[in-house]
């Protein structure tokens, strides 16, 4: 290893333009450094102010009992973490988040793939259909939530009126007010909202699948279905794994849609970690407990993200390294 640096130097670039290299390189290095600093500073600054600083503050708040105003004086150590982790509502919320993570992937993956494969075929109105699928994702989450809230009004909403025309009656507390139905209803709305993203990413991934491969498979006598299953979907792997990662992080941090549709209710049936901490903070003014919950949420999300990158995304990133190495 120690010999290596010498070797390239021995065969220094023969071109005349490089004769003044030391001075020019220093100038370039300096300019390069300035360029890097100049371009990354705004982003780094924003990151520091809006991500790093709040996280540090949250950690600080989480070891105090604090009502949200006045000085931080009542140091309680890890007591807030104990109350959060022993609170049935919080552990229930963690369960809900994990359920949403799993169900989002289980429901949206096959659905998104199916729609993407269908939309990838040449057909009339392809553009329109793609747009329709993608519109819910573009819609503001709050607006979508309010619209669904109105559609799902118990007894008077569009959904129950439609059910009524075929002779069915909605539950007395409505779909969002019945503890057993609130979570499934939420999953349906989330699927409607986010399947568009999966479809969009999968469609983009499908563009990267060379047509020659499917053609070759077809020549070998593969059916359309076999072609998709054996050729296309395996090649979509990296896209699917990246989408699942985004979906997982989004599900862990889920807040807006739940807050608008149910507020975490009824009877804590749809509480997520995010609604729990907002409720503890703004409604009960237990900012210390809310901060502890936010740190727990952060750690859970971080650990899951790291594990996922280590064990699932590694294949893709390793591949990338190999490619770079070849070059």
């Amino acid at each position: 290893m120690t010999v290596l640096p010498v070797a390239p130097r021995a065969t220094t670039d023969p071109s005349a333009g490089r004769a003044s290299r030391p001075a020019g390189a220093r100038g370039r290095d300096w300019r390069m450094a300035l360029e890097i600093v100049g371009f990354t500073a705004p982003a780094l600054l924003l990151f520091a102010v809006f991500v790093v600083w709040p996280i540090l503050r949250a950690v600080q708040f989480s070891v105090y009992r604090w009502k949200g105003f006045g000085p931080l004086v009542d140091f309680v150590g890890l007591q807030n973490y104990v109350s959060v982790l022993t609170d049935d509502v919080f552990t229930g919320a963690v369960g809900h988040n994990l359920l949403i993570v799993v169900l989002s992937i289980l429901v949206q993956l096959p659905l998104g793939l199916a729609i993407a494969l269908l939309l990838n075929r040449r057909m009339r109105g392809q553009g329109v259909l793609r747009t329709i699928i993608f519109v819910p994702y573009v819609l503001s989450e709050v607006i979508a939530g309010v619209v669904w809230f109105q559609l799902l009004q118990p007894g008077r909403g569009v959904v129950e009126t439609l059910l009524g025309t075929v002779g069915l009656e909605g539950p007395f507390q409505g779909f969002l007010g019945t503890p057993e139905l609130a979570m499934p209803t939420l999953i349906v709305v989330l699927t409607w909202k986010y399947v568009g993203l999966a479809v969009l990413l999968f469609l983009a991934g499908l563009q990267g699948v060379p047509a020659e491969l499917s053609e070759a498979a077809q020549i070998d006598g593969a059916t359309w279905w076999q072609t998709q299953w054996r050729v296309t979907i395996p090649l979509l792997g990296p896209t699917i794994r990246m989408w699942a990662f985004l979906s997982m992080i989004g599900s862990l941090q889920l807040f807006d849609m739940v807050w608008i549709l149910t507020g975490g209710g009824p009877a804590n049936a749809t509480t997520t970690m995010a609604t729990f901490l907002v409720n503890e903070g703004t409604k009960r003014q237990n900012y210390g407990i809310a901060a502890a919950a936010s740190v727990v949420l952060f750690v859970i999300a971080l650990v899951m993200a790291l594990l996922y990158q280590r064990f699932v995304l590694r294949r893709d990133t390793d591949d990338a390294d190999v490619v770079r190495g070849v070059r």
Binding site: Q150, Q153, P154, G155, R156, F172, Q173, G174, L176, G177, T178, T262, G265, P266, A267
Partner: peptide
């Protein structure tokens, strides 16, 4: 009222 568990106090006609 029907659906009282998810009824808000005073925002909106429902």
């Amino acid at each position: 009222n029907r659906g009282f568990l998810s009824t808000p106090a005073q925002s909106g006609p429902t």
